[in-house]
Amino acid sequence: MTSTWSAAARRALKNSHVQFLILGAALLLLPVLSANGIIKTSTLSTLGFVLIYAIVAMGLNLLLGYSGLISLGTAGFMGLGAYIAAYVQDNLRLGFWVALLAALVIPTIIGILVGVVSLRVRSIYLAIATLCISEILLKTFEQAEWFTRGTAGKQSTFPVIFGIHTDRRFMFSVIVIALVLIMMLTHNIVHGHLGRALHAMRSSEVAAQAMGVNVLKYKLFAFAMATLYAGLGGALYLFFLRSSYPSSWNLFLSLNVIAMVVVGGLRSIFGTLAGAFVIFAVPELVLKELPVVGDIPGLPYIFSGILIVVVIMFFPQGLKGLADRVRHALTPRPPSVTKDAAVVQEATR
């Protein structure tokens, strides 16, 4: 009896959705630890932002990792999500759910419009077009005071969800739930028909077209998902921090999200989470605490920038590739080419 149980448990553990749920359950312990004073509130906040950026980065991974397209508009769309959430909740007083929905839908629609215009010719135009949209959005955040209160910053409150007045710890749990749902959604997308089409498109656009993949449609799909995730991340950011300033949504946030995807490993869900931790939490929790070095201005930028360059040059599969290699070295396997070994081969080629 016990052996069948353990076999079933082992099989369940291999299921990605079960892994996501276990991760979520573990993360839900953090607010409890924080309430008991075991971890600092500031640490909980930092980790909350890591999870928010992980959500945004997973969207960008669909675009960058699976479709091979670059967006420089992540920060703009995230900021748009944040301001819309604040405006709908605090100015229109329509409540949490409507605010969340608006923060998802409006950036996505704008994203699709930008994609339709820029993706027709050359993929790289998307990067330039999103750079431009990002500048436009940033300017809007500074100028449209009725909407954003300009450089003074938009202040907001913790939302009321199902009649519960939330606080920072509660919002952390909401973020965890959103993260787990997003991980599941992303997993479904990349491991099915949609993901195959994205793979085909990135690997060879001509072959994809010959197989009937409407390349423009799937590029748009990937970009729309990236915008949707950014909008969600923005809304969660606002509800977690309760304020938003235009300066938070500049190009360097977009670049940092790219760094998270690249460092974590293209096309890896857990890798992206790890990447978000390295890029956001390490400068915040570790570098700042270092003597002398910690006071250097611009250090987080250099940290992210150098990591991007080094990872692309020497570890194209990022942290995920490193983890695969370590796992491969530790587990004895039959000599035939297994899936993992082939991954390593690809990575080292």
Binding site: H199, S203, V206, E346
Partner: peptide, 23 residues
């Protein structure tokens, strides 16, 4: 098919074939 074999290295063989059924 293509002169210089256009398949997707990062996918399994069966997933590659499934692309053919995309439409």
């Amino acid at each position: 098919t293509f002169q210089n074999v256009e398949i997707i290295g990062e996918l399994s063989l069966v997933d590659n074939v499934l692309i053919g059924g995309h439409v």
